[in-house]
Design a protein around this nucleic acid. Structure first.
Lengths: 177, 177
DNA sequence: AGTAGATTGTTGTTGAGGCAAGTACAACTG
DNA sequence: CAGTTGTACTTGCCTCAACAACAATCTACT
């Protein structure tokens, strides 16, 4: 069996990316577990917190996160049961719903995020020289724009228009998680 | 609600990392699905293919992959059921088992990997200038070594000794997935 | 208006994987 | 050598998410 195919230098970068991703998420797990949140739930909360009027369409959440639309339905179910999010009907499209962050949800995010950011600093950004970090972001942005063109759905800030067709993609905004 | 905490520049890099990871894995999914493999299964197969004598201890697999030990048990169950892997008792430690890649497993990996590498080239490494890629690998390695010190468990090449205590970590070898 | 087709969101089913408890063995202690 | 402690897996139970089928609604075309 030829071994060259296993040691192809291209897979090195891919392997490193995967390991870094997995390792960092491992580091975040304890904090999230302490607040009874899964990664997917935290992701949804943060995206809502960063959105105008703390709301996003269910389908926009699905586009932004790693979740399918049914996954979003269930995550929002859980968050709603815990009082962190509510559903609000879209006035102009009766099929649509907004997930809206409640006051309790905002508090929860506000309480977790500083610790979470500290973990990122400790295990990731703090390990890198400023120019290395900048270069990394440039590089990642290049790849992101290639593989994930829809990652900014619903963040144009025109919430009033968000009930209409999904607006055009605007300048990419790096999502939080 | 103060918004600074949401736009903290530190989380930008983290968000990009997550999006790149998710986006790339999305690109790999069709190929793996065509071969009836999950990402975890493919990961295990590749790690076995890269290991001396195509074998690793179950616990080493757990340390290298994102899986827990019970997760490894079940993944190997499936791979064994499909004839790609067999379990082999460790002669010197009767608690231990090796997962060993069968001929069929080697063939399967050999058939998939070129296509997989091509996808990596198309969506990731091919998008970057050589020096940008090298810088990325350096940066990722720095973070990886911090968050994932055990990622090279069982790759020292001393298979005969692998039945004893897990050997010292040697020079990190970027894993494939 | 009227119907075809697309889109939004929810639900039933299936399967993956983590945790904790259990079994079997190894290594250390006195 | 008996007893304790630690390690290597496995198994039962649970949570979670994807897929597909479905209901409701919107859009476009005639």
């Amino acid at each position: 069996m030829t071994k060259e195919v296993f040691t192809d230098p291209r897979i090195t970068a891919m392997g490193l990316l995967n390991e870094v991703h997995a390792g960092l998420n491992e580091k975040f797990q304890p904090l999230l577990a302490a607040h009874k949140l899964s990664l997917a739930e935290f992701d949804v909360l943060i995206r809502l917190a960063r959105s105008p009027r703390y709301r996003l369409r269910m389908s926009d959440l699905a586009a932004q996160t790693i979740l399918s639309t049914s996954g979003v339905t269930r995550v929002v179910d859980r968050l709603e049961r815990d009082g962190l999010v509510t559903r609000e009907a879209c006035p102009s499209d009766r099929r649509g719903f907004f997930a809206v962050l409640t006051e309790a949800g905002q508090d929860r995010v506000e309480r977790i995020l500083p610790e979470h950011n500290a973990l990122i600093e400790t295990w990731f950004t703090g390990l890198l020289a400023p120019e290395a970090l900048a270069a990394l972001e440039d590089t990642l942005r290049t790849v992101r724009d290639a593989v994930r063109p829809s990652s900014t759905a619903g963040v144009t800030g025109e919430v009033e228009r968000a009930c209409l067709r999904r607006p055009d993609r605007s300048e990419p905004v790096a999502a939080s998680e």
